[in-house]
Design a protein around this nucleic acid. Structure first.
Lengths: 375, 375
DNA sequence: TTGTAGGCGTTATCAG
DNA sequence: CTGATAACGCCTACAA
């Protein structure tokens, strides 16, 4: 019967009594080993061991005023990423665990869950970097999710000493209220006048390099953008693409294609329309790798060959981009480094922000040239 | 200046005053919305918003006797997995974040960190399943690591309502002390007489199916095992391999090769010795995909062709196994499902364990036939 | 529906 | 090194 305490958890008092010392010594034995004689320390730890004593993190957090935990929060929205087929997790199979016997393969949904287009994605690699750095720092990580309702956000804020966030558009103002009490880092958020730290990639530069490659190596000038312009990242990338084309004296196509990450529903008719109208571009530049995955599927279904008939590129450089046919030319973000940077900022091991302002750490991306552009 | 509270965090008292209500109403506004009139509830939440109030998770945990958090713990040992080149994270570059300007690509170690042989591994996929289920349950996850010293373990135990663990061999006894206070799940641990729950895969069955394939489809009977026999998983797999060969009337080679996950140092001379002695087997069956990765490198360096000269197989079915040359024939564990099962056990949404004992959930694995066996 | 008071388990302080 | 005691912030009977 999980979740039920069979026994009362032992406290400092129990241990103190068992070891015939004061509760202060018990506390010291765990937190200030140096302030205790070797002998009593051993005696205390021994008693603790006997009793199965575990110091209450909650009580410690209360007394100290901080928990020592760093948080990483994803809004519910992002959870869709978990499932390429738009199937909510709750709809997945949940094999009975109390039935006994071996659980059959078909009950695990493993084919869906192991799809490299669904994991690891941008978010996952950033998260990994965050975890790695926290491990190196010896600090626990708290992963949470929730709506961007105030209550949900506040609940998360109340548990950690610092919080890194994959922001949704309307997130920043809500968060701003909490910044006086704990530091907050936003991933991939455009600069703005708020009190948060930022860790991001130079989207403009990545796109500039990518366009340069397409134009110079492949003489591709007729380029269409594919992406959802709700995300600020996508907007930055599209704008940079247009700017770079114009800088080269090329008049850009201004119709961008709205792609959803999940499903091909919206993409199919748009691609068909281009085909039918003889308006296919020479290249599709996608806002993210995921957009490119979807697009590749659609193109394949329509009998359009990549890269012969049309070039396709992605953005992010996720693992899945190596596994498409052909492999995807894309712009890689140093995602692990971004996650690590956020952890260091929150932990206070990153120095002081410049000019007495907040951190705005910008990483250089890298074009990964692969088959889908014809290289 | 991260980690320092510019302002004192507001408390229930501040909010109560701001909203002209009692602290109980403040608490109710967050935890028991129904026990309050719509009007006062709004008034309280409004005041909270104005003040940037976030309920202290520590205080709540203390008062309630539980934190609501589920934990996932990895012992330091496992952290090596993060780095294929045995480079501790601390040895990696840590670009200065307070210098201003864009951080150059070479300072990110991205090539190391994005190596698919290092991520995602078995542990990462199980972790992902755990996270997915916790998200679906609306529960935060705490990720921690540490030595298997009692103090470290106890500290983790004291922060969560339930704990899932990738155990090291000597872990179980230490943990057993804490089981009366919180439920504990061990991943991939052989059954034993301790109070922990277990989530694992049927190693014997996976190995049986794999050997069946090698023998029946490829007439490979001279098979050598590669792995570190410290891990109980590896032992189970080797024993199952031997048993299956014997069941087929084949006399198994009893010399297994000791492979380390990191580095090829120990593997090279052993493979060389086999080559020199003309004792190369028809197939190498590795205990894990990682062992197979290393072995493939060594074989390539020695000019041995796979699968023509020798067959190589892995175990786990990590993403990296798709990316080797040739792609690796391996046995996949339903890792996400395993992580999800652990979360459900800890959260109490898995029913009751059979026969009033602990859960021992066993999943069926699946042979993934790919190029490295000659298929 | 609202207010009051006691308690949760640590840490920190301070005089012995 | 000990012992006593006051926070820490919230939850929850219980009383009003």
């Amino acid at each position: 019967m999980p979740e039920e305490q069979t026994t009362r958890r032992p406290t400092v008092y129990d241990v103190a009594q068992e070891a015939s010392v004061s509760i202060a010594s018990v506390s010291f034995a765990f937190r200030r080993p140096d302030k205790l004689s070797e002998a009593t320390r051993e005696r205390v730890l021994d008693a603790a061991r006997r009793l199965g004593y575990a110091p209450s993190g909650a009580a410690r957090g209360l007394a100290r005023g901080r928990t020592g935990i760093l948080g990483l929060h994803a809004f519910d929205l992002l959870l869709e990423r978990a499932d390429p087929r738009a199937q909510p997790l709750s709809g997945m199979q949940s094999p009975a665990l109390d039935a006994g016997g071996v659980i059959a393969w078909d009950q695990t949904d493993d084919d869906v869950l192991s799809d490299p287009r669904a994991f690891p994605l941008y978010v996952d690699e950033v998260q990994r970097g965050f975890e790695l750095e926290c491990w190196a720092l010896g600090r626990p990580v708290m992963l949470s999710s929730g709506s961007d309702a105030d209550v949900s956000v506040a609940d998360t804020v109340g548990r950690v000493d610092g919080l890194a966030i994959f922001p949704s558009p309307q997130t920043a103002p809500t968060l701003a209220r909490h910044t006086p009490s704990i530091p907050i880092v936003l991933f991939s958020a455009a600069p703005a006048d708020d009190p948060h730290h930022r860790v991001r990639v130079d989207n403009a530069r990545g796109m500039r390099d990518l366009v340069a490659h397409l134009v110079e190596e492949h003489a591709a000038t007729d380029i269409a953008f594919v992406g959802r312009l709700e995300a600020t990242d996508a907007v930055e990338r599209r704008d940079a693409m247009i700017a770079e084309l114009e800088a080269r004296g090329i008049r850009p196509r201004l119709d961008s294609i709205d792609a959803t990450v999940r499903g091909e529903d919206e993409l199919v008719p748009q691609v068909r329309a281009l085909l039918a109208g003889g308006r296919m571009p020479r290249a599709f530049v996608c806002a993210t790798d995921q957009n490119a995955f979807t697009l590749l599927d659609v193109l394949a279904a329509e009998g359009v060959r990549v890269p012969d008939d049309v070039i396709v590129t992605g953005f992010d450089g996720t693992l899945g981009s190596r596994l498409t046919t052909p492999p995807l030319t894309t712009v890689r973000q140093p995602m692990e480094a971004m996650g690590r940077a956020a952890a260091r900022i929150l932990a206070g091991t990153a120095g002081s922000p410049p000019r007495g302002k907040t951190f705005d750490v910008v990483f250089e991306p890298r074009v990964l040239v692969r088959g889908s552009c014809g290289c």
